[in-house]
Computed example of a mutant assay.
Amino acid sequence: MGAQAIARRGEVAVRGLSKSFALAGGRLNVLRGLDLDIRAGECLAIVGASGSGKTTLLRMLAGLESPDAGEVRIDGVPVRGVGTERAVIFQEPRLLPWLTVLGNVAFGLEARGLPPPEAEVRARETIHLVGLADFEAAFPRQLSGGMAQRAGIARALAVRPEILLLDEPLGALDAMTRMTLQEELARIWRDERVTMILVTHDLEEAILLADRVLVLPRSKGERPRLVDVALARPRDRSEQNFVALRRRLMAELSLH
């Protein structure tokens, strides 16, 4: 069987997904009856006002929370808790302070049963991928915020996930570091071809990275909307169509 006949993995199907939380003696509906298909190898950005359910949706995709109704399927299999085919990158890198960069990246591999020598080799490959080859012996306290987040990205990529889930991973960084790492994420996605699902408040970041943008409405009476990002890669933030799409997304968020 040829390589082209092998189905790519990392396809996500969301069906009738609903989630609410207890609030002031009642229930706050965060998501209601969401249906969504995410293609294998796609980059999807999720945007919306605070409280629209962005992080809640990501956590249910990760298996960190259970829905009230509906389900998430990955490659046709229902999600029941966390799984090895998914990796999550949070806003804070959450590195173990007593381990070096190499130790942090290799730790997750060894925890999954990879022999230490093999884990070290793969960890070094991934550290090189994120541009930290000269800092593998550094401890977290010796890293800048951007370097620490690169280490967190390397740790997630090292386990070779089918799906990479990112919750505002660059939100705490300064503007210049953020722009640099946005370009790095675009390059890593292009090279690794994992399914990438990104929660962000930054519309420019969403357009730069995503194939499609899911806009979650502030009002629970409105339906979520999917917007195609039909722009050639690599993308130019100052290009006319890029700017026009950013204005469209701003308008959508302000209207709903």
Rank of each mutant, 00 (worst) to 15 (best):
A158K: 03
V159G: 03
V159F: 04
R160G: 02
R160T: 04
R160V: 03
P161C: 06
E162Q: 09
E162H: 07
I163R: 05
I163P: 02
I163V: 13
L165V: 08
L165Q: 10
D167P: 12
D167C: 05
G171T: 08
A172D: 07
L173Q: 05
T177S: 11
R178D: 07
M179N: 10
Q182I: 10
E184Y: 00
L185T: 12
L185Q: 03
W189P: 05
W189R: 10
R190N: 10
R193A: 14
R193V: 03
R193S: 09
T195R: 05
M196V: 15
I197F: 10
I197L: 13
L198S: 12
T200D: 07
H201Q: 15
D202G: 13
D202I: 11
L203S: 08
L203Y: 13
L203A: 12
L203D: 13
E204P: 08
E205M: 13
I207P: 00
L208C: 09
L208T: 15
L208K: 14
A210V: 13
V213A: 02
V213Y: 01
L214Q: 00
V215Y: 06
P217W: 02
P217A: 01
P217E: 01
P217K: 09
R218M: 01
R218F: 11
S219C: 06
S219M: 07
K220L: 12
K220M: 07
G221V: 05
G221Y: 00
E222R: 14
E222T: 08
E222K: 11
R223K: 15
R223H: 07
R223C: 07
R223N: 13
P224C: 04
P224V: 13
P224A: 09
R225S: 14
R225N: 03
L226Y: 12
V227M: 08
V227D: 03
V227S: 08
D228H: 13
D228C: 02
D228L: 13
V229H: 06
V229R: 04
V229L: 02
V229A: 06
A230N: 12
A230V: 10
L231A: 02
L231M: 06
A232K: 15
R233K: 14
P234K: 10
R235V: 03
R237W: 02
S238W: 11
E239F: 01
N241R: 15
F242P: 12
F242L: 12
V243Y: 01
A244M: 07
L245I: 14
R246M: 07
